[in-house]
Design a protein around this nucleic acid. Structure first.
Lengths: 142, 142
DNA sequence: TGCATATCCTACAAAATTAGTAGGGATTAA
DNA sequence: TTAATCCCTACTAATTTTGTAGGATATGCA
């Protein structure tokens, strides 16, 4: 399951995706509109920024903006930044690989299954984007 | 990610699947062979038994056996028993559904995406079985 | 220059979950 | 009736998740 932090990240990105191309959006606005604890949200947005997904502007009139178009932000990327691995086992993770001891990777049956499951999941999560996510709710209020 | 407990469960089931049709297997044997802490393994096996996946026999010559054939135990079932939901969000889980507040399920974009991802994952995990998992390692030693 | 407005950084704390242990009870075979 | 084996309840330790506190840093504007 995705952590609450990751769900918050998606909600924040949704909000920013809808405002994409307009003025920067303040943390406090996102916090209030999407009901995310303010200081927690700060941490999340900094992480997304450090990962290159957002840009920010300080001072009056400042806030956060998407750095790239919603249609170029896929869900797998967001999950990896905030939540971590998508695979069900460390030894089949593409981005967070860890060898499992007491297991021959050539012959391990569990591993083979989990690779197939991972690929099926990734096929969706890497294809779907923030643009897909906000379809049908582009009208939060202008 | 699957918990260590779930990984232990799979290892234990693998071992039992390979012995399927023979004598009951003692907890202590599984523990030693698969390097799973004994008392922890006890808990796991009881859970699998209560879920109807194993049967047990007490006293001398006793132990655990699969209740059904390895080819009738799919991976999704095991994960649900020991690990919990397979879906990425509670509000899209088939077996552990929980309504999410502040979200209209009819229009929520995130929900739509997560349903698609869930179905892709389930398609694999519900089709693959313990029999698939032990293919190629039916020879632990007789 | 100086003040108000924002983001950014470090550190801590509380709550929840996961992982594992302890100790004895109940059942069965011989 | 004893040894072997699973079963049950409860606890503890470690780790992760979910936040909070408090100030540092940068920016726009008068």
């Amino acid at each position: 399951m995705l952590s609450k932090k990751t769900q918050y990240a998606f909600k924040a990105l949704e909000y920013l995706a809808i405002q994409h191309g307009k003025e920067p959006v303040k943390i406090s606005e996102i916090s209030k509109q999407q009901k995310i604890p303010l200081k927690f949200l700060e941490n999340i947005l900094v992480e997304l920024k450090n990962a290159g997904m957002l840009e920010s502007k300080k001072g009056k009139g400042g806030g956060y903006m998407l750095k790239v178009s919603p249609k170029n932000i896929n869900l797998a990327t967001v999950i990896r930044i905030i939540n971590g691995p998508i695979a069900l086992l460390p030894c089949v993770s593409l981005n967070f690989y860890e060898k499992c001891k007491d297991c021959n990777e050539e012959t391990c049956g569990m591993r083979k299954m989990m690779i197939i499951a991972r690929d099926a999941t990734l096929k969706i999560l890497e294809k779907k984007t923030m643009a897909d996510m906000i379809k049908g709710e582009l009208t939060i209020e202008n």
